[in-house]
Design a protein around this nucleic acid. Structure first.
Lengths: 205, 205
DNA sequence: CGACAATACGGAACGACGTTCCGCTTAGCA
DNA sequence: TGCTAAGCGGAACGTCGTTCCGTATTGTCG
């Protein structure tokens, strides 16, 4: 499922094999950067990332020549991880429960995005493709969960996945410290979904 | 007119006299910072500002211990300058002409605000008071110009000054390079104002 | 299995930056 | 005119992003 769009993932041509240690370090950098970005934001010092990854500075710059390359790669990586969680949850839980759990997973993802929003609006063309990628991966995933829950009669069928995605993201982003606010609001959203399950209200957006 | 609200303008208590050179350097720093911010944005290197002001680094930090202090001071200073231009223009020109000229002045002001928007949304509490100050100074000023033009029968009377302020600012901000777009759009706004002058259209937003 | 080339690694080194500190200068006053 | 305190400049320090290159590791071929 991650392979449906792999353009730009530290691009590798078919003719070129990647050395094992190179791959290992790339992975270590990605997960270290993800942790550091979540803790200190995307403006965190580079050395903090290389230290956590147990890697020299040169290694980072060979794999990610521009800072935006690293940020974009981490972002894509996490978008993939979050999107890929959906089918797993769908296989393990009832439709409604799977939807609820995935939305929780999604808010957890959004909550780690301190300062990314600023980077996205910085005008740097390197970030231009990210919102599209975000939408492209998540909308079908959420649509699948919604459709399944709607078929089971658990939620209404007249909700646009993209609207729900944006609403959930917007509820989550402004929360600097989580005091349960996000969870309560998302729960409210889900209750709203369930409300019209069997008597769908067309115009009552 | 600048004195109506002077809270926080490098605060000086009545009991303390300011030394002449200190005042001179403060002014030099403010105008240098204004120029540099306009050219390179609010993230410009500190040394660039001190160099243009002909001042040492220590001097800057004594007058503006935090970077946000300097930014806020520059912003307030420019807000004041722009707001104070209104009565002058009103005295020199016919009502409509004064309004047009002040709006041009205002778009010039907004156009120098590269990156300030990002600082405002950074969550730093030091910037919290700026939007309020902005609104507090400009709304009465623009209301005065509008009222005078309306009394002269030049523009319609049903326009909220704050709406016009925001609309004008929004037209100006996104323009990275000025190709005349802003000027044309603001002119369009003014034409819209004039359209309903003698037969005011109430509901026609 | 062993040696060679290609590839990748680490961290020292560099320049730019924000910020602090302190010996010297200057303004204001008697 | 001389004294004092307020104010000044810029050297100095620690941190940052980024580059560079001698060294280590990998994959392959004999």
């Amino acid at each position: 499922m991650s392979e449906q769009v792999d353009a730009g993932e530290t691009e590798e041509r078919p003719g070129k094999r990647v050395r094992a240690d190179a791959q290992r370090n790339t992975d270590a950098l990605l997960s270290a950067a993800a942790e550091v970005f979540a803790t200190s934001g995307v403006d965190a010092p580079v050395r903090q990332i290389t230290a956590k990854a147990g890697v020299g500075a040169g290694t980072l710059y060979r794999h990610f020549p521009q800072r935006s390359d690293l940020i974009a790669a981490v972002f894509r990586h996490e978008v993939d991880a979050c999107a890929d969680a959906a089918p797993v949850l769908a296989a393990q839980h009832e439709p409604l429960e799977a939807l609820i759990r995935w939305l929780r997973r999604f808010t957890g993802f959004i909550g780690t995005k301190h300062g990314l929003s600023a980077a996205l609006h910085s005008g740097d063309p390197a970030y231009a493709a990210l919102p599209a990628y975000f939408q492209q991966r998540f909308v079908p995933v959420l649509r699948g969960l919604l459709d399944r829950a709607a078929e089971a009669g658990e939620v209404r069928a007249d909700v646009d996945p993209y609207d729900l995605l944006r609403a959930t993201a917007n509820l989550t982003l402004p929360a600097r410290e989580d005091d349960g606010h996000t969870e309560r609001m998302v729960a409210l959203l889900v209750d709203g979904l369930r409300f019209g399950a069997r008597r769908p209200v067309r115009g009552a957006g």
